[in-house]
Amino acid sequence: MAKPALSPEAIAAKLVSFIAECEGIPPGDVRVEGLQPMAGGASRELWSLNATLPQRSLELVLRRDPPGRSDESDRGLEFELLRAARAVRVPVPEVHWCCRDARVLGSPFFLMERVAGETIPRRLLRDPEYAKTRENLVSQMGAILARIHTLDWRDPALSGLAVPPEGTEPARTEVMRLAEAARTFAAEPHPVLDLAERWLLERIPATRRRTLVHGDYRVGNVIFDTEGVCAILDWELAHVGDPVEDLGWFCVRAWRFGNDDRAAGGVGDREQWLNAYGEAGGDPVDREALRFWEALGNFKVALVFIQQAHTFLSGRVPSLELASLGRRTAEAEAELLHLMEEGS
């Protein structure tokens, strides 16, 4: 049984002694205030708080696994990834302290800098005040991604990363996993997905170089302001694999947030996107490999919509939003048909 949730006051008190212990200072020298839940992912809890230490006052975010679910995640790895990313000048929140077990707050957590800015992608893509951010977005995101792909994933600190065994084709395994899951969760047949599965399996690209893959690199996972992108977030899906996976995921239709004719994140086209990546030192990208990964990404999105509808239909979560998302499967199917037939 899960223990009752800690109150914000209890969390703050525990953080005071945790921070004091990490810093080797008396708990009386640490103050933690203003603990408030932040809107965030369903799988991780986010809290904003302010910490005062001798000579330092920090605006922080607490990122914590929901208690009882710590077995399937690794806050420690995410902490190390953020640290490693910062070391190669990828804009990310500065990380401060990490607790890899359940000892302090009932589940693993870490504390990082609270980066000021906006995260709602529709604002980035539409609001006049972000015109300059939009203008530079493709080149900035391409350059940052090229740096992410230079990260040394063999660094012992990152040993928790999933690495596909040598000689395997992880893309093939992934296509088969997605297709099987779609058939399991869908309440009705989806011939488009069966067609896409065949198409993808015929086109498994050769991975030229294995790199760190962010795993969820898109316009919805950044903090931005009126000047540009301030931080890349959500590293929990990072793994080792084909760098083109990130390039393709960025172009997936759902991440254009309605600007469907602009493939690269709803702001640019694929040529600009690959150029930005290449100019910043990224490897040359084969267009067919990009098309494969982009199609695989749209397949993944179709599966997410199907699973969200399934969660509603199973009666577990009576959410109107989840229910309505089931009907968006058709958008991903339309994009898959488009990608398969483009130029054939």
Binding site: V192, F257, G258, D260, A330, E331, E333, A334
Partner: peptide, 20 residues
Amino acid sequence: LRETVDAKLAVSRPPRQGRS
């Protein structure tokens, strides 16, 4: 399949504010 998906989209997608 194109026609089938278009028919689904004609129902699921709000026509005025574009696709999203």
